[in-house]
Write a protein that binds this DNA or RNA. Structure first.
Length: 943
RNA sequence: GCCGGAGUGGCGGAAUUGGCAGACGCGCCGGAUUCAAAAUCCGGUGAGGGCAACCUCAUGUGGGUUCGAGUCCCACCUCCGGUACCA
């Protein structure tokens, strides 16, 4: 019995494709090109989960479809294989991460091949390959060799950096330092999360409430020399570049918000003695607003210079460099202890809202530049050191945070913006009892009263600029990118630190010469942390750690790059994966770039995509790539959740409790309204009824039940393994099901019965063509070398049209629905013209390639169906001789009439009004209005 | 709090963008085939009412625009995701 047997067919055709090189991509495209890219996976030990094939199937369909349309397609795959899990595995087992990584990549490769994706496997790369990370290191050196020229908004070689005379005179060392301060890759002291117990530095995500996520040990923030990338210089370019991209608006918005551009002004507040103030003001009037405020001024950044008259105090961040000098002796202890406490809090904790605001007075005051009055300076951790100038002017009347702080510490509130007269809380606002953050008319602002916010902003900034006390300024939330990790399993930095004769670093850095790349990872005895905030590479043998070059001794940089590094540019390497001389051949780059379609999860909406764009722009500025943006079109696949779960509740006595009466206590445990604990019972849908909006127990309709699908997770036990699905249903079924579940971008719950549904469809396709009663594999007797009749021809061409359009629009679910209709239609037919079957198989091939190869062969195809060209539909065949349209009366369908589809408006109306059923309905009524839409409907408005 | 996205049958989802709501699939019901079952094939399936032809009600809720609203506007509710003092 020749039943559809996926496991046999699928392995056969996968071997065929590999043997024949069916999907090998030429070096250069001939004719139109399409670069279709997946976000490459991290090869975890768990193998693929069903979320991977979702995006991969979508791109595979697009890639196969594009090939059939005659485009040259680049559709590659690779592995983002540096990362923490392999290192943790190494710490536990002593096995080199490379070994485990290799094993995982092999497993992923097996799984990916099992799904029949049309990747060009000759181009596969892993970020951990030496031949790959050699170029990651090389790009780092490009960043190191680049400075950002603000004037031209462009990265340029460091050799072109203009050196001021004074620096030049100070000698080589000063020039070196001057350059180092301007490179896109630079070292700086950054605060890291150091956990002494674990003996390691942690990422922000690994720290919760000031404690390590693993173990719950205290984490301290300590400054450590770190590599940073000056992504902030590219903020404006990264923002502007978004305009031209075909990305989901939501993702663009996320990136915009992340970059967080704001405009306002920097303002200097005088902090010296009163006697020194006049000369200071005078000098400012003549010299203008300086780059450096000097020691007698405190500089703030504000987006609301119009509220300067309402600034009643100032706040500096605990890490602000002036904290010490601003602190009065009698406040010294309080300030010191406050700052110490703040240093223990993680960024996350400090910025965790609703926690109330705390602060401490420094004892000193500053002069408000517009009122001339003295206002107190506080230290508080609600001001962030890393944003703006790390200091603010506080305007409690018009800033919610300042207001909250002012109320706590009883600081004055002076309203300077009058809300619109119809504002419900206007009185409270004017009395300084309520905070108002929106725009209005200035009050209590001598010289500006009555003017509107925007106007006041402008003129206050103008006046400050004229007096040398302020200047318009732009700020970004985006921070420079902390680029080094104290980890083993990452790319080593290709940087050498010069040592003096005593073996101490001189501070001079030197890039590893190009010919010496890659800098490989050393072999370590063990990978365990060693209790100092120093990277594991510092434990390497001396012959790795120390280098002699041109008679000088150097110590290697021992930090490694973050996982982002390798994923920042992999899309370029696919184009020229084995080039040993260059990152990428410029000719190939020009032909293939940019990526035409990039599909992946939304979790990379900000970081990966922003980092990648940043590197790409630097490479662009330095002439290594030809296009300013890497990813033309981006599509985010939605998450696949586990099967829907029904959850009921029971009290301690075991009696069912309605979900409506179940809440959560402070610790998140489920309890009844009276506070007693409830237990959770998992239910089957056979036990349930639906009443209105909710599910209830069949046995007792008073008892409500929760119904929800959850994110797949090991702990919940709802993870679906692709291996199992392929084994049970076949790869084509898995592919098809994931595409049929719903729109690609939507979040959707898994349903095993649905997989059975699409398998059912493939079985029907098989039986439509194959004689399943015969002993050997042969065509069904219904397949004939005959012409389609009119309705078959229409069905065929409508299907070609729908599948073409839907595949173009990536509406795979509706394309599949249409192919199901086709199959249902032709299964019923006694005669199935072979030509129609062949055309249909071509349409289905991108979706279910294995099955289609098999049936294609059976229908007489000689080559792979993947090499066929995509069919065209014939408009003439689509036209139906007559269509049924509704006749509405007052917008409600009453009667249906049959007309030819090209009937004119007037004759439609004539036919409708001539219909006796319509006439009967119109009796005793007055026809007020008649609407006819050709090919659609007739609507009669009557009274 | 803020920013996104979404609410349509028992379930997943369709709906040429303002024109017959529920395509397609699952599930369920009935029939055929079978000694029986599986598989397969055929038919039915939003709710309520009626013997029936038919009627009424239905796209989270309430209003509005329109000949006509799942689709547009206003107000609100719920869920999901992201984000968090950026001055």
């Amino acid at each position: 019995m020749p039943r559809y047997n996926p496991s046999e067919i699928e392995t056969f055709w996968q071997a065929y494709w590999e043997r024949e090189g069916t999907f090998a991509t030429p070096e250069l495209p001939h004719g139109p090109k399409r670069y279709v890219l997946d976000m490459f996976p991290y090869p975890s030990g768990d193998g693929l989960h069903v979320g991977h094939p979702e995006g991969y199937t979508a791109t595979d369909i697009v890639a196969r479809y594009a090939r059939m349309r005659g485009e040259t397609v680049l559709h590659p795959m690779g592995f983002d294989a540096f990362g923490l899990p392999a290192e943790e595995h190494a710490i536990k087992t002593g096995e080199h991460p490379r070994v485990q990584t290799k094993r995982n990549i092999d497993n992923f490769t097996r799984q990916l091949k099992m799904l029949g994706f049309s990747y060009d496997w000759d181009r596969v790369i892993s970020t951990t390959d030496e031949s790959y990370f050699r170029w990651t290191q090389w790009i780092f050196l490009v960043l190191y060799d680049t400075w950002f020229d603000r004037e031209s908004q462009k990265g340029r070689p460091i050799a072109e950096l203009p050196i001021p005379k004074s620096v030049e005179l100070a000698g080589e060392e000063a020039i070196g330092k001057y350059r180092d301060e301007r490179r896109l890759a630079y070292q700086a002291d950054a605060l890291v999360n150091w956990c002494p117990e674990l003996g390691t530095v942690l990422a922000n995500e690994e720290v919760q409430d000031g404690k390590s996520e693993r173990g719950g040990y205290p984490v301290k923030r300590i400054p450590l020399r770190q590599w940073m990338l000056r992504i902030t210089d590219y903020a404006e370019r990264l923002l502007e570049g978004l305009d031209e991209l075909n990305w989901p608006v939501g993702i663009k918005k996320l990136q915009q918000d992340w970059i967080g551009r704001s405009t306002g002004a920097e303002v200097d507040f005088f902090i010296g003695d009163d006697s020194a103030r006049e000369p200071w003001l005078e000098s400012r009037r003549t010299t203008g607003f300086p780059d450096d405020p000097g020691h007698d001024a405190l500089r703030v950044y504000t987006t609301r210079p119009d509220t300067l008259f309402g600034a009643t105090y100032m706040v500096v961040a605990p890490e602000h460099p002036l904290v010490k000098s601003l602190t009065h002796p009698e406040q010294a202890d309080a300030v010191a202890s406050y700052c110490e406490k703040a240093s223990f809090k993680s960024d996350r904790e400090r910025t965790d809202g609703d926690r109330g605001k705390s602060g401490v007075f420094t004892g000193s005051t500053a002069v408000n530049p517009v009122t001339g009055g003295r206002i107190p300076i506080w230290v508080a951790d609600y001001v962030l050191a890393g944003y703006g100038t790390g200091a603010i002017m506080a305007v409690p009347a018009h800033d919610a945070r300042d207001f909250e702080f002012a109320v706590s510490y009883d600081l004055p509130v002076i309203p300077v913006v009058d809300p619109p007269s119809d504002h419900p809380k206007r009185e409270g606002i004017l009395a300084g009892k309520v905070c108002f953050e929106a725009k209005g008319a200035a009050i209590n602002s001598p010289g500006y009263d009555g003017q509107q916010t925007d106007e006041v902003k402008r003129s206050v900034t103008q006046t400050l600029t004229k007096d040398g006390l302020g200047n318009g300024a732009v700020n970004y939330k985006l921070r420079d990118w902390l680029f080094s990790r104290q980890r083993f399993w990452g790319e080593p930095f290709p940087i050498l630190h010069e040592l003096d004769s005593l073996g101490q670093p001189t501070g001079v850095k030197r890039p590893v010469p190009d010919g010496d790349l890659p800098v490989r990872l050393p072999d370590l005895e063990d990978y365990k942390p060693h209790g100092r905030p120093e990277p594991p590479l510092a434990k390497a043998d001396d012959d790795w750690l120390y280098v002699e070059l041109d008679g000088k001794r150097y110590r290697r940089e021992t930090n490694t790059m973050p996982q982002w590094a390798g994923s920042c540019w992999y899309y370029l390497r696919y184009i020229d994966p084995t080039n040993e001389k260059q990152l990428i051949d410029p000719e190939k780059e020009k032909e293939w770039m940019p990526v035409d379609l990039y599909v992946g999860g939304a979790e990379h909406a900000v970081l990966h995509l922003l980092y990648s764009r940043f590197w790409h722009k630097v490479l662009y500025d330095r002439g290594h790539v030809s296009c300013p943006e890497p990813f033309n079109r981006l599509v985010n696949q939605g998450m696949i959740l586990g099967e829907v779960e029904y959850t009921g509740y029971r009290d301690e006595a075991g009696n069912p409790v309605s979900a409506a009466d179940v809440g959560k206590d402070e610790e998140g445990n489920r309890v009844t309204a009276s506070g007693s604990a409830v237990s959770v019972v998992s239910l089957q849908d056979a036990d349930l009824d639906k009443v209105g909006e909710t599910f209830v127990l069949k046995s007792n309709s008073e008892i409500r039940v929760d119904s929800r699908a959850f994110k797949m997770s090991k702990s919940r036990g709802n993870v679906v393994n692709p291996d199992d699905i392929v084994q049970q249903y076949g790869a084509d079924s898995l592919r098809l099901y994931e595409m049929f579940m719903g729109p690609l971008e939507a979040t959707k719950p898994w349903a095993m019965t649905g997989v059975g549904g699409v398998r059912n469809f493939l079985d029907r396709v098989w039986r439509m063509i194959v004689d399943d009663k015969a002993d050997e594999l042969r065509l069904s007797a219904a397949i004939m070398e005959e012409q389609c009749d009119e309705s078959q021809l229409r069905m065929l061409h409508q299907t070609i049209k729908k599948v073409t359009e839907d595949t173009d629009a990536m509406s795979f679910n509706t394309a599949i629905a249409r192919m199901m209709e086709f199959t249902n239609f032709f299964t019923r037919a006694k005669k199935r013209p072979a030509e129609a079957m062949r055309t249909f198989i071509v349409l289905l091939a991108p979706y279910a390639p294995h099955l289609c190869e098999e049936l294609w062969r059976l229908l007489g195809g000689k080559n792979s169906v993947s090499l066929e060209s995509w069919p065209q539909w014939d408009e003439a065949a689509l036209i139906e001789s007559s269509i049924e349209i509704p006749v509405q009366i007052n917008g409600k369908v009453k009667v249906k009439i049959s007309i030819s589809p090209d009937t004119s408006r007037d004759s439609m109306m004539e036919i409708a009004l001539g219909d006796e059923r319509v006439q009967a309905l119109l009796e005793d009524k007055t026809l007020v209005k008649q609407i006819a839409v050709p090919g659609r409907l007739v609507n009669l408005v009557v009274k």
